[in-house]
Every structure is written in C-alpha cells, then in structure tokens.
Amino acid sequence: MKRVTMADVAERAGVSKSTVSQYLNQRYEYMGEETKKKIAEVIDATGYQANTLARSLKQKRTFTIGVIVANILHIFSTQVIRAIEDVCHQQDISVIVCNADDDPKKEEKYITMLRAKQVDGLIVFPTGENKTLYDQMVQERYPLVFVDRLVEGLSVDTFLLDNKAALRLAVDYLVEKQHRYIAIITTSLIRHVTPRVERISGYRIALEQHDLPIHEEYIQGVNVEDISIALAHLLALTPRPTAIIAGNDLTLMEILKSIKRDKKHIPNDFALLGIDDVAYAPLFEPPLTTIAQPAFQIGEAAARCLLEKINSESMNDRRQPGIHRFQPKLVVRASC
C-alpha cells in the first residue's frame, strides 16, 4: 500500500500542508475547532504517521530527552522518573532512562551514548565523579539539569530536598517523644553523595540545637549489605540508642528485614523513623513514622526546567542556573 503523506491528509481535510504541520506540532493558536476536528478524522481514517525523522531534521531536534539515575532501586528515583515522564508526555517528548548504579564509568558511558543519539537534553542524578564531562556540557551550553545531588563548582540547575531541614524535623520529633539517645544509619558515605552527607550534617546540627551529645558511634554510613551489622552494633552499645533514623529507603528496608529476623519489636526495642515516605510505611506493623520528600514536585520542576532550556531560542533567554530545594514533611504514625 502507498504510504499516506502529509499532502494526502491536507487534500482530504481540505486544508494546506502547513495547517496539517501546525496541527501535528500542536500549534493551534489560529486554528478553528472544525479544522482540528477534520484533520483528526482524516488522520484516524488513513492511519497517517508523521515522519519523525523529517521533523527532527527540519527543527533540529529529536524530541527526546535522557534521564540518568544514580540508582533506580531508590523509590525516590522511580517517583521522579514518573513525574518527568508525565511532563514530557504532555509535550510529546520521549524519555530514555538509564541506570548508572552509582558507577561513574557507567554514567560516562550513558552520557556519551545519549548525546550520540542527539537527545535534546539530559536530567542527571550525578555520581559527582565525571566533573570534566559535566563541565564540557556546561561550556557547550547543552541543556542539562541535575536532580538530588550537587556538584560543586558547576553552574547547573539542581533540584533536591532540603536535607538538613528533613533531619531537623526528624530529631525535633524524636526529642519531643522524650528520646535522648538518637542514632542514624545510612548507606555508604565514601562517595560523599549529597543527600547522605547533608542528612548526617543536619543530624549533627539538630542534636547540638537540643544540647544533646554527639556520639560518633551512633553515626553509621555503610554498604547496604552491612546495614544489619551496623544495626546490631548500635543495639550493643552502652548507652544504647532508644531511637534510630533510617537515612533513606534502602536503609529502612534492610533495618526492617533485621527486625523481622531477630524478632525485635518497634517501638519497644527502639523507635524507628525513616527518611522517604515509602509506600509500605502505613502497612508495616506498627505503621512507620517518616519524613516525606515531594518527589513528584521535584521531578516535575526538573522536567519543566529542562524543556524551558531546550525551547529557549538563545542563551540570552535563559535565567541564571540555581539550586532549588524542596521542603520535607513529617508523617506521624506509630513507630516512634
């Protein structure tokens, strides 16, 4: 069968090719409802498919963006991706998602691959160890947005939680519940990942504000597979922590596994508060008190910022990049 062309659609709808092109590109400003309806009916009847390659060549865009997440196992990451995809779907933009596994070499590979595919821009949860590559994109004025993690010395729009405020909320609540021995466990601090480092810093600041001593042994930053060991170490200390903060969702999951295996009882054995309001938090027994971060708002804001950069006709249209922090929310349940 002969392939249906834009000219065929225009002829059957009784409009010009440029009108069909405007319809396909969702430029409806000067188009009547009847015209839109006729074009839609012809496209539906003929099964016409736009030539995306020709569209890309003409507009010098692929209408595709790349998202590189540091670790897709984090619930926060999947929620942010969903929000990005929602925004892009509304704009007929495709999204390619890559998981770097917190590995700088994988991240570098994906950045190179996505740019070779000529994606229009990138949203990256940066490992922080490809600074030369990031800087090259900044110098080229390539549309780039960071999520969740800061890279010092680079002027890139970055969207993330106010991590210190999150820990202040957590410690304030635990102190209000009469806890004086408060510990924190998070995943490895070796790579100085922004949320982990800032949350430890926020924890220290909050304890100082309450005139509570900082016990260094109460601060555990370990690999995921060692979290159960870190928990056992904390519970063997004297004085023993009466409350433990799980620094992220992966940490919380490992702590809950240990609780089940060792037949511990929350909050009798120790109070537990998680950073990240995971979906199962209200389903656990007892329901888990958490600090929620607005993942969907962060994802939406990052996507809109990137599309704004892509759609800017010149760098003069772009505002100065900045750090955009979002406020946490305490969700009180029964684990503290």
Score class of each variant (00 low, 15 high):
308 E>F: 08
204 R>C: 09
70 A>Y: 00
247 G>I: 10
259 I>S: 05
165 A>K: 09
240 R>C: 11
336 C>G: 08
35 T>L: 01
195 P>L: 05
93 I>G: 00
123 I>Q: 01
328 P>G: 05
33 E>N: 05
137 M>W: 01
259 I>G: 10
255 I>E: 02
47 G>I: 03
67 V>G: 04
208 E>Q: 15
312 S>T: 10
253 M>L: 06
134 Y>P: 14
172 D>A: 04
182 I>D: 02
84 I>F: 01
274 G>F: 00
133 L>W: 03
249 D>V: 01
196 R>G: 10
75 I>C: 05
326 F>T: 02
33 E>R: 02
327 Q>A: 13
335 S>W: 06
81 I>Q: 08
268 N>S: 14
209 Q>K: 14
292 A>I: 03
113 M>W: 07
109 K>Q: 13
277 D>W: 08
213 P>Y: 09
50 A>G: 02
161 L>F: 06
225 E>H: 12
333 R>H: 05
141 R>T: 09
153 G>N: 06
237 L>E: 10
24 L>E: 00
223 N>W: 12
79 Q>R: 14
208 E>M: 12
266 I>P: 04
68 I>N: 09
278 V>P: 01
171 V>Q: 12
23 Y>I: 03
21 S>C: 07
42 V>F: 13
105 K>I: 07
316 N>C: 01
61 R>G: 03
135 D>L: 08
15 V>N: 03
221 G>C: 08
89 H>W: 01
169 L>M: 14
202 G>R: 07
56 S>L: 04
105 K>Q: 14
182 I>Y: 03
71 N>D: 15
146 F>G: 13
274 G>W: 00
59 Q>Y: 13
216 E>I: 13
66 G>D: 06
2 K>W: 01
70 A>E: 00
269 D>G: 10
225 E>F: 01
89 H>I: 02
284 F>R: 05
324 H>G: 10
154 L>N: 08
79 Q>W: 03
54 A>C: 09
92 D>M: 04
304 R>E: 12
